[in-house]
Design a protein around this nucleic acid. Structure first.
Lengths: 341, 341
DNA sequence: CTGAAAGCGCTAACAA
DNA sequence: TTGTTAGCGCTTTCAG
């Protein structure tokens, strides 16, 4: 019988050294390849290591080299598909480097957010990517993070924290929506209204502000970034007697909820109610009808994060405005709000 | 000005000890509270630590105590909402313990899956929860994992790997679907067919087998666990002239894709086409129409994982069949396939 | 090109 | 109750 799993004493470099009849330093050199050595001996050591099933203890290495080759990513909520998509893309962008990405879900709790940060800092990650839970209340957490390690705020911006930020230009995105409305929509027949999220995050804030600026005096409903809220909001509007209009949602998850509710009420999208989303989640091009949305350049954004964390960018003496890196989104017109021509 | 973030030399116990005028061991005891000591001194030490902004270095601690209080969770793909939901729930179940959960996405790649395992093992996690990518090809990876640390396979089972498994009873779930069909559906008017995933995972396998056993001779289409595949499959069926039937999907993501396509073709759910899902994702109760599905007892499953990892269960001399812990799912009848009465 | 030894930050056994 | 010290596994000077 093989031994019980997870019970055997781990084999160390000491063991490999003994087995190969060399010093522990030689084993280290043979395995990491940092210093020149005779190929024959290297071969010999590597063979011994494999024979014993040696696996490097990264804790020991990290303590010595003071680097962990790891990155912490803290997301507010994994069940929000936009955040899962971001997490996946961050992982993907670091896959070609030697940096491992670990994801921690704060489950929309400031306490868990703090716990995640403490935990990552304690484990000496080389960098921290943080999508903060709350625009105001996460400030202490962001400060805690940035005091310990290179920190990048992603997607959501907490003001007055001295960290880099990577995100998309939400105002520009909402301006694209406004242009689309002016150009392609009969606003008298299908007047616009906004279903957004309460301004507890910069994204919610910026999208809301940009909408009310571009489209003043329109109806605005605020909830959170969820499918359920979109559905609830649409139910309210329809129960109020709405039979035609253009619903601008602050996120695709909201928009998809809106569409479900509109169709449940027997109205047609886009003939009766147009729906416009934001983010351009993968499923949005598959929904029925397909969703007009604002596409965030996620791959570009995560590449920017790679550059910052791996230090490919000096970042030393940046002017304040350069701390914030925003990327231009694009309008993707689909069936839920087609163009007129 | 404050110092540039992430640049200051970290403050160690040594520093705290010097500042407080005590030995380093006293600092350790004051901060961890493992040994009795005079409250006044503890107070004093804690104050010094806070003054200096001391943060424990968990790497140093881990090297010494040979425990990291951390758990690795490897998922095949974060963009699949079912896996994100599982990840969230695992995190949640461990939130009350002192074990931190780190998530790693294998991005459906065996190489990345292996990298994640190596990385977690090297970092000496106390346990590993693995949702394997592939029923056959992941075998080496599972063996690698289980050779290093307590490993639990979750949701998907790779045979002949000596690890515990936690998942739901997929066959029982599909039997519930069959019962529902026999009881509530006019099978002559709405004949059942199966839209599943290729048998590259135990879940796909078991659900497919259970369907073909309960409902022999029915049409079966196999793709993958995605919204897009559900849509594509439904398009095929409808293009073949299907105008009424019952589509049993192997997962909610597939079912949602099916529903979108069916509605895009102008057919009604459930009047023309019934749709039944599996997993019972949160959004499934919000879709339009709401989705009849098989609910997995996710919270129960993750609690079982907690028990295994934290060693609340002996697990020493289990019989082979006890290594597999399956939980009973439940049928949730909603609008997409209502009951007859 | 290889070995001996120091030491990363921490905790625990042992002394006082 | 507190201090001294060894050592977790590893890399990297420094000698040889």
């Amino acid at each position: 019988m093989t031994e019980a799993p997870g019970r055997k004493t781990p084999v160390t470099m000491q063991d490999v050294a003994a087995r190969a009849g060399v010093s522990i330093a030689t084993v280290s050199r043979a395995l990491t390849g940092t210093r020149p050595m005779s190929p024959a001996l290297r071969e010999h050591v590597v063979a011994a290591a494999e024979l014993l099933g040696y696996q490097v203890n990264l804790i020991g290495r990290a303590l010595r080299v003071r680097r962990t080759s790891s990155l912490g990513l803290i997301v507010p909520d994994l069940e929000n598909p936009f955040f899962s998509a971001l997490a996946q893309q961050v992982s993907r962008s670091f896959a070609t480097s030697d940096t491992d990405v670990y994801i921690y879900s704060a489950d929309n709790s400031l306490d868990l957010e703090r716990r995640g940060i403490q935990s990552f800092l304690g484990r000496q990650v080389d960098g921290l990517v943080l999508i903060p839970c709350h625009e105001v209340d996460s400030r202490d957490n962001v400060l805690l993070a940035s005091g310990g390690v290179v920190t990048v705020q992603f997607d959501r911006w907490v003001p007055s924290a001295p960290t880099r930020y990577v995100g998309c230009d939400n105002r520009a995105g909402m301006r694209l929506v406004a242009e689309h409305l002016l150009c392609d929509v009969d606003l008298a027949r299908q007047p616009p209204m906004f279903v957004g999220a309460g301004p507890t995050s910069s994204t919610a804030h910026e999208r809301l502000n940009a909408f009310t600026t571009s489209m003043p005096g329109r109806r605005v409903l605020l909830g959170d970034f969820s499918f359920g809220w979109g559905q609830l909001a649409a139910d309210q509007l329809l129960d109020d007697g709405l039979t035609s209009g253009t619903i601008v949602a602050a996120a695709d998850v909201i928009a998809l909820g809106v569409m479900a509710a509109v169709q449940a009420h027997g109205l047609r999208v886009p003939d009766d109610i147009r729906v416009i989303g934001f983010d351009d989640l993968g499923v949005s091009s598959l929904a029925h009808p397909t969703l007009t949305s604002i596409r965030q350049p996620v791959a570009q954004m995560t590449e920017a994060i790679v550059d910052i964390i791996l230090g490919r960018i000096s970042g030393q003496n940046l002017a304040t405005e350069d701390l914030k890196q925003t990327f231009a989104p694009a309008l993707v017109v689909r069936q839920s709000s087609p163009s007129c021509c």
